[in-house]
């Protein structure tokens, strides 16, 4: 079993855009990995002219929003520039030798890294309101230009996801069940300074056992 990794293109976003952008990306990936019976749901972004698809799983939606909250929290506490969210899919294998310790092994077969560069607002954090206020000031034009650029980039990321899904099909394990979100997944957040970033990853790899080591 090999683990496919997809590093999604980095996005320069502002604080108020985090939620929409993350929802859009996470749900898009999960929709492509929810191979059970789903009834898709179209969602129009408020900030961008983009429609993405959810797989209509309320529990999944809740989990994603929870993780996004965590992420926003981290961004506020550690206003460093590199922020990464990793969405991983795995299979659960009971380790023979240690089954009595209730230790289960996660065999990761796919990881998606969402790279966000959250801009630091000079005015500080504008709370949770992510409404697109039309402010008449000289910056409005450049802001809308920035918004358009971000929309294009976000669209690119979505296409990147679709291309990846298209190209890599062989590593996906058999569909375990008929429920919408068929594979176990986890969403991890790494919001740390550049230097500590690698360490964090290494720690996580050691904890979970990197799939490539296991394969």
């Amino acid at each position: 079993m090999n683990c496919e990794v997809c590093q999604l293109k980095e996005l320069d976003i502002e604080h108020f855009e985090i939620r929409e952008v993350l929802r859009c990306i996470l749900h898009t990936v999960l929709f492509h990995r929810a191979l059970g019976l789903v009834r898709p749901k179209d969602i129009d972004l408020e900030l961008f002219e983009i429609t993405y698809v959810q797989c209509g799983d309320v529990e999944l939606e809740r989990k994603i929003d929870e993780k996004i909250d965590q992420f926003i929290d981290r961004v506020e506490k550690h206003p460093n520039k590199k922020n990464q969210i990793c969405l991983s899919f795995y299979e659960v294998k009971n380790k023979q030798a240690t089954w009595f310790t209730n230790k289960v092994e996660r065999l990761y077969w796919e990881q998606w890294y969402i790279n966000l560069n959250v801009a630091q607002h000079p005015k500080g954090i504008s709370g949770k309101s992510y409404s697109s206020k039309v402010v008449v000031d000289p910056g409005a034009e450049s802001r809308s230009a920035r918004r358009a650029a971000l929309e294009t980039s976000l669209r690119d990321v979505l296409f990147q996801i679709i291309r990846f899904v298209n190209e890599k099909k062989d590593h996906i394990p058999p569909i375990p069940n008929l429920e919408g979100v068929s594979f176990p997944y986890e969403i991890t957040i790494s919001s740390s300074s550049d230097s500590a970033f690698g360490m964090d990853m290494l720690k996580r790899m050691l904890q979970t056992g990197h799939p490539t080591m296991l394969s």
Binding site: H32, L35, V53, L158, I162, V165, I172
Partner: peptide
């Protein structure tokens, strides 16, 4: 069948983009 599922998911998402 599995790959068809995947392809159709892609189609579904792509057509909206």
């Amino acid at each position: 069948y599995k790959k068809s599922i995947l392809l159709l998911r892609s189609l579904y998402a792509t057509i909206r983009l």
